[in-house]
Amino acid sequence: MRMFHGDFWTNPHLIDENDPTGLYTWDVRNPGTGQLHECLDRAIRWIDDRIV
């Protein structure tokens, strides 16, 4: 299965007004196998106050 960066562009869901929003989940179906995959992503505040 070929994936493109845009398929997983979650940044708009991870940060709201300079604060992490919490866990973001979505499903992706592999068209080759038909398998459904649950994806999880989140932003965190680093020790030096950066959001990563």
Results as ranks from 00 to 15, higher is better:
Met1Ile: 08
Met1Lys: 09
Arg2His: 05
Met3His: 07
Met3Asp: 10
Met3Pro: 01
Met3Thr: 11
Phe4Tyr: 11
His5Val: 06
His5Arg: 07
Gly6Tyr: 02
Gly6Asp: 13
Gly6Ser: 08
Gly6Ile: 06
Gly6Leu: 03
Gly6Arg: 06
Gly6Trp: 14
Phe8Met: 15
Phe8Pro: 02
Phe8Cys: 08
Thr10His: 01
Thr10Val: 12
Asn11Leu: 10
Asn11Thr: 10
Asn11Gly: 05
Pro12Thr: 02
Pro12Asn: 05
His13Phe: 09
Leu14Cys: 01
Leu14Gly: 00
Leu14His: 00
Glu17Tyr: 04
Asp19Gln: 07
Asp19His: 05
Asp19Cys: 04
Pro20Tyr: 03
Pro20Ile: 02
Pro20Val: 04
Pro20Phe: 01
Thr21Asn: 01
Thr21Gln: 04
Thr21His: 02
Thr21Ile: 01
Gly22Glu: 03
Gly22Tyr: 05
Gly22Thr: 04
Leu23Asn: 03
Tyr24Trp: 15
Tyr24Arg: 08
Tyr24Pro: 10
Tyr24Gln: 11
Tyr24His: 10
Thr25Leu: 04
Thr25Glu: 09
Thr25Gln: 13
Thr25Ile: 12
Thr25Tyr: 01
Thr25Ser: 03
Trp26Leu: 02
Trp26Gly: 04
Trp26Asn: 05
Trp26Glu: 15
Asp27His: 11
Asp27Pro: 02
Val28Ser: 02
Val28Gln: 08
Val28Lys: 06
Val28Ala: 12
Asn30Tyr: 14
Pro31Gly: 09
Pro31Asp: 05
Pro31Ser: 07
Pro31Val: 00
Pro31Trp: 03
Gly32Arg: 15
Gly32Asp: 11
Thr33Ile: 01
Thr33Gln: 11
Thr33Tyr: 01
Thr33Asp: 01
Gly34Lys: 12
Gly34Pro: 14
Gln35Lys: 10
Gln35Phe: 01
Gln35Ala: 04
Gln35Pro: 05
Gln35Leu: 11
Leu36Val: 08
Leu36Pro: 00
Leu36Arg: 14
Leu36Met: 10
His37Val: 06
His37Gln: 15
His37Pro: 06
His37Ile: 07
His37Lys: 07
His37Leu: 12
Glu38Asn: 10
Glu38Trp: 00
Glu38Ser: 14
Glu38Phe: 00
Glu38Leu: 12
Cys39Met: 14
Leu40Ala: 15
Asp41Arg: 02
Asp41Ala: 06
Asp41Gln: 14
Ile44Leu: 09
Ile44Gln: 13
Ile44His: 11
Ile44Lys: 15
Ile44Pro: 05
Ile44Glu: 14
Ile44Asn: 09
Arg45Tyr: 03
Arg45Pro: 02
Ile47Lys: 09
Ile47Leu: 04
Asp48Leu: 03
Asp49Ala: 13
Asp49Gly: 09
Arg50Tyr: 14
Arg50Leu: 10
Ile51Asn: 09
Ile51Leu: 09
Ile51Glu: 09
Val52Cys: 15
Val52Met: 10
Val52Leu: 08
